[in-house]
Structure formats: structure tokens, C-alpha cells
Design a protein around this nucleic acid. Structure first.
Lengths: 222, 222, 222, 222
DNA sequence: TATGAATGAGCTTTCATTCAT
DNA sequence: TATGAATGAAAGCTCATTCAT
């Protein structure tokens, strides 16, 4: 990765190295030193480009996030709900296979869910809650919001998709789409993490179909 | 918590404080000093009782784990699959509401899934794999195994339940129960985490029923 | 050692355990906990009997020291210098084989020679010097004096012996006995430590004779 | 020492401070904080340069060791055995006067002789033994070996010298050179430690001659 | 712009000693 | 007299960040 120092710009090399190190170690345990060494740049360079460790992680995530968004938005709007559902789930599964640890870190560490924080949008503001009393400080909140916003943008696409499915009467009218879309989004993340272990023979495409099927029709005998 | 120093033994106070601090900070970022202060005991006392930070966390988790297991095993074996399913899911949801951050820490940090590790049992041994090359050291593996074993014991109960459902032909015969039970187990964890935020009006009982319904029959219009 | 708790008094058991632990670990690294466990007494008991770790070590050393002195003084005064020399050296070698680590700890750690301190008697007072500027504090000096006194008593016996040898004209009249007796005393300690490794076939008796021979006549070809 | 911060590089200042602190306190009781303060550098700097406390000590010792070796090897090979003996002993005495506490720490603490460990080379491997049952762990052994190797290199020079003396028939043919060279080597160390106290009037040169004389011909009246 | 030597607050853990029982 | 639970000061080491070059 770090060998072809001429092929990539310093910024790209840092991002590539950051991906590897954050994926190996998680966020807290990842060391800027390791990223520096792997990227084959000076330590100061990382700080020049990205300001600090957290912002480096954010930029890494943001870049991937936008690539995912682009793919998701590229799905042909005119297709049927079921076709779009399969296709978009495939994109999501495919993305997760490449970025699973990073996205787990994002969901667990960076949104503060490992500290009992959770947040949701109330109108145009984010509200924070906690299972244990202390709310995040203002600075912490600003950071958390950035990561919540990323996840929210991703979830929203599936939420809108499911709404469409409900309008098209494929999805039951009594279903509450909001939590349901979160179930789908985070549930697939868990499934991908386990798929890798137990179900390596199935292709991503087939897997996406299976998820759609189970999600829509359950596992009960017909 | 620390106020009622006479009501609880030092050991209990440490465990109570540990729960709060680990839930506030996750495992790595939790400081033994904070646990000590909150429990209102000397720092050495924690080490006398539990040996080190990791063992303290383990004892905390193990204690809760056994309480959960007891409840799950107390479900009347003679009831029908559907009754048992609802009842056990309710127990699991109920348990998670009380221990959600701790169990997220367990699943994410302590099993090393934040580092790309995953493990599964091959016969009577645990095998470790990683998305990024470095395997955990022997010592780390020993620690990981303890946490995997806890989760495995919990998942197994649901796996056996679903097998029963398959035998009773409530669950489709073509479903692969092994990954499916993991989906259920970890999926509910995710749902509970989001339920708290978006769906506070519904009772745990009702929620458990909803999960069963969606899991078995999906969300498609009938 | 600790098994026959009825055979020995608590005090004896502590001393026996202390010997083993100090010999295994040296003074600083020996843990009072280990002594307590091995002696099978409560930790407070050690402090009741001996006050603190240092005094426990001192009592241990002192007890052995007096046994050595008794043996050395029991040598028949009327024998010739050479006979007495051999006999006393044998006693010293024999004692060291049983107490080598303890006496190394005494010489190195407890006299502060590992800290560059050295002391000698000026009349009836001990004077302290150091290679590195800071003299030991008053309290430290008091402790050091106790250990220096023990070694001094032991060396003195050999010093007097060599003086006698000089009077009997077996030892050259130009030899300065004071440093020479220290050479003998500490040199034998070093030799015993190495004898154990390289020269196991020779008996202690033969070894004492060898030391006497080399000390008196050197190793040059005759 | 710390005053002339411009005269010495940080590395040199750390080594100088380490010498002083290890000489004042021995190895175990020396505090990295004190070295840091005395060297007037940040604590991390010590770890950047030397990795850890033990390696710092090792580098300190190794540096001195190589200087000693250079001097010892610089002795003219063509001189007679007796001339070389005097000259090399003078070098050794001279070296010890400057490094006595450090070399005592090396011999006593770092080789584990304060814990009853001793080691010797069997072919090309070091074998460990102990007076009290517990052998050092593998990691401890690796560290011990480094210090044993240093001492071994130094002793070996004297061993070879004495072998030469035996070939030249200056030393008795029945003498076992191996333990004898250890006696000389460690004995001189003891003597230097005591010389400083009792015999300051004699020069190092004269002292070296005296040791040679006593070692070869003993102290008996001729 | 790019560097990496230097920093020091902050972490986990140890262990001699105390003291209420 | 005997105990051992409890203590907390003190230790080695880490690593995000800075800043002179």
C-alpha cells in the first residue's frame, strides 16, 4: 500500500494508511504513528493536512460515504420498488464488505453509542440523550453531530425507499417505517459481519436477495 | 450510587461503579480511577477483588450474563414454540434495555470486532480470523475467547429455539438457522438501541411481539 | 516448609519463609505477601513480630550471623595458625553455601553498596562516604550501620586470624592485613558463588584447602 | 550535569543522568523520573531513544563495556605475560574505579545473582540454574543473557591471558584456569571497592602490581 | 510545504503498611 | 495475640500533539 509512494499523493497515502490502521485497531487504539509510518510521510504532514486524529478519521469516513451515496443515487429511479430494493441492498452489502470495520467503528465509537449517547433530529437540530446522566460537552456534540449526519444521510435513503414501498403497497400500511429502516440498515451491518464467517459460499448478490426476502416475508413456513 | 456506602458491600459498590463507568466511557476509555472514586474505595481494593481492569469488566458481564441465562432457562419448556419465542424475546429485550451499553461494549470492544477480529468454534476450539492480517496474540485470544463464549452461550439458546421452530414446521425448512439466530440476537440488540429513541410509547412486551412478527412474517403487505 | 505448621512457632515459620523469599527475590523485589503466604500466617503477624520488612530481614540475617560466629569462635584457639585458617575457612565456605544469596543481598543491597555508599569505623563511630554526592539520611545511616556491624564482626575474626599468622611469620611482614582480610572474606564469597557452577566435584573441605593454598602461595609455578 | 544543556546532545545527557541515577539507586530503585529530571529532558524522550528502562541501562553498560574492551585489546600482544598481566590489570582497576557502582549493579542485579540465578555457557547456549527453584522466564532469560554475555567477554580476556601464562609456565600447570580467571576478575572488583575505602594512598598502578603479586605468589612469607 | 524530535499528562498496576475486628 | 481487607503513593510506560527547522 505504502510502497508505491509515487503513484499516490501524500493526502491519498495518508487516507489509505488511515483506513488500514483504523480497521486494524479501531479508533481509540489506532496510533497516529502507525498511520504515519504506513503512509511513509512525516507526522507533521498528517496534522498539516487533517488537523488532528479525529478529523483524519472524519475525512476518511466522509470520502467513503460520498462514494456510497453516489452509487446509491445512481440507481435508476424508474425501476420498481422491489428491483430498487434489491439493487440498493446489494450496493450497501457490497460497500460494507469493503468497509465493515470502519463502519462498525463509526456506528459504535464515533457516534458515542459506546458511551450510552444517542441523538436524533428534532426539526433541524440534533438532540442528545444518554443512558447515564452526563451529556456530551458542546465540543463533543459538534463532533458527534458530524458522524450522526453521515449515518442519517445513509439511512434516509433506505427510509425513503421503504416509504415508496409502502406507497406502492408492497409494504404493509401499518408498519412504522422510521425504526424499520434503522432495523434494516443496522441489521444488514450485523448480518454482513456474520455472513463473512458462516456463509462464504453465497455471492453478495444472492445475499442481498436473501435479506430482501427475509425482511419482507420473514422466515416462517409458507 | 456512592452515597449509600453502608447499603452495599465494597465488592458490590465496585461492580455498580464499574457498570456506570464502563457504560459512560466504553472499556478502553474507562478509567480505573473513576471507578475507584465512584465506588468510594481505595484503588488497591479494586485490584484485590478483581485482579485487573479486564477481569473487573469480565466479572461484571459474567454476573449479568448468568442472571440472563437463569431467566431464559426458567421459561416453561412445555409451552409452544411461538409462546416460548415471544417470552424469551421479551426477556432478551428486557435485559438489553437494562444493559444495552454494556452489551454493546461486550459485542464491539471485547470481542475485538472493532479491530476486525472474528472467531467461531471449530469443534471444541475457537478459531480466530481477521479482516486485516494481524491475528490477536495468544494472551489476547484467551481473553477474547471468554467474551465469545458468553455471547455464544446466549446465542445458542436462541439457535436451539429456532431449530425447535423448524422441527415444528413454523419456520421454513430451507432456512439456515445458524446465521439466522445471530441475525435475531444481534438484530434485536440494534433494535433495542433504536427503540429507545424512536418508539418509547410501545411496551417491551408489545415490542417483543412485534419483533417476533416481523422476524417470522416480514413487513410485506399480506 | 510451611506445611508442618505445628512443628515451628509462628516466629520461626516467618523467618524460614523470609529466608526462602529473600533468597528467591533479593530484598527490594521480595514481597511481604509472599512471605506471609509461605509462612501461613496473617500479614499483621509479621508486623507484630518484626515491625517492618527491613527489620524482618535484619533479624533473619542476625540469627544466621550469630550461628556463624558461634561456630567460628568454637575453633580451638590452641591449634596452629594454618590449622585454624583451614578450619575457619571451611566454616565460612560451608556457611556461604547455605546462605549465599542472603549474604550477597546483605553485602550488596543492605550495605548500600548498590547505591555507591561505603562506610568504615573511625574509632567508635561509622563514617559514610558515597561515590555520588548524596549521603544517606540519618535514618538510612542507622539502618546501614546495623548491616555494616554484622559484616565487620565477621571480617574481624579473619583479620585477627591473619594478624596472628603474621605474628607467627607465616604471612609476610610487609602485608597490610586490613584490606587483605577483606579480600579474603569477600573473595571467598565470590568464589563460592562461582564454585557452585564450575567445580561441583570438589568437596567443601578440599575447596577450603585450595583457597588457603592460593591465598598464601598464589598460583605461580614453583 | 544538567546545567550544560548545550554542551551535550540529549542522548548524551540521558546517558550521563542514567549513570548518576543508577549509581545512586541501583537498577530497581532508580526512577526514570529522576533520570528525566536530571537530564532535563521530557520523559518520552528517554523512551524514544532507549525503548525502556532496562534497555537504557543496557546501552549505558554496553557503551562502557566496549570502551574497556578497546583498551584491553590495545595492549601490545608481543609483550611478555607478566607485562601484559600488569598492564591489563591496571586497565581493569582503572576502569572499575570509574564505574564501580555500575559494574556492581551489573554483576549483582542484572545477572540475577541477587535472586540466586546463575548461568553458564554450554556450547553456544546459556543454561540457567537457580539456588531456589524458580527459573527465570524466557523473557527474563533473554535479558539476563545480554548481561552475562558482556561479563563473559570481559572475563574471557583474562582467561586467555592466564592460559598464556600457563603455557609460558609462569602459572602452575595444575591450576584450573576457568574458575581462577573468575576469581581474579570478580576478586579485583571486590578489592577495588574496598581499596577506595582503606588504601587511598597507593596509586592504581601500584595497586595493580600488588594484585598481580598476591595473585601469583600469595601473601605467605618467602 | 514537510518534517520528526520532543513533550508530559495520563494511564494501569504494585505493594508496604495500617488498623478495626 | 492474630488477622487480612483496605489503602494510596509511586512506578513504568504511551501517544496525540506541537513547533523549530
Amino acid at each position: 500500500m505504502a510502497e508505491n509512494t509515487t503513484e499516490f499523493s501524500k493526502r491519498e497515502r495518508i487516507l489509505l494508511a488511515a483506513e488500514e490502521v483504523f480497521s486494524r485497531q479501531g479508533y481509540v487504539q489506532a496510533k497516529v504513528d502507525d498511520i504515519m509510518t504506513l503512509a511513509d510521510v512525516g507526522k507533521g504532514t498528517i496534522y498539516n493536512y487533517f488537523g488532528n486524529k479525529e478529523q483524519l478519521f472524519y475525512h476518511l469516513i466522509e470520502e467513503r460515504h460520498h462514494k456510497l451515496l453516489d452509487k446509491l443515487h445512481a440507481v435508476d429511479k424508474k425501476k420498481s420498488f422491489l428491483e430498487k430494493f434489491s439493487e440498493m441492498l446489494y450496493i450497501w452489502v457490497n460497500f460494507l464488505e469493503d468497509n465493515i470495520v470502519l463502519w462498525q467503528v463509526l456506528v459504535f465509537e464515533m457516534t458515542g453509542s459506546n458511551k450510552g449517547y444517542f441523538a436524533f433530529r428534532n426539526g433541524d437540530k440534533w438532540e442528545f440523550h444518554t443512558s447515564w446522566g452526563d451529556l456530551p460537552t458542546k465540543e463533543e456534540q459538534d463532533i458527534l453531530v458530524r458522524y450522526y449526519s453521515i449515518l442519517n444521510e445513509e439511512v434516509k435513503i433506505f427510509e425513503e425507499l421503504l416509504c415508496e414501498g409502502q406507497k406502492e403497497k408492497v409494504i404493509d400500511k401499518d408498519i412504522n417505517i422510521h425504526p424499520c429502516s434503522r432495523d434494516l440498515f443496522f441489521g444488514v451491518m450485523m448480518r454482513v459481519f456474520h455472513l463473512r464467517k458462516f456463509n462464504k459460499t453465497i455471492t453478495q448478490k444472492e445475499y442481498a436477495e436473501l435479506v430482501v426476502k427475509n425482511f419482507l416475508y420473514g422466515i416462517a413456513a409458507k
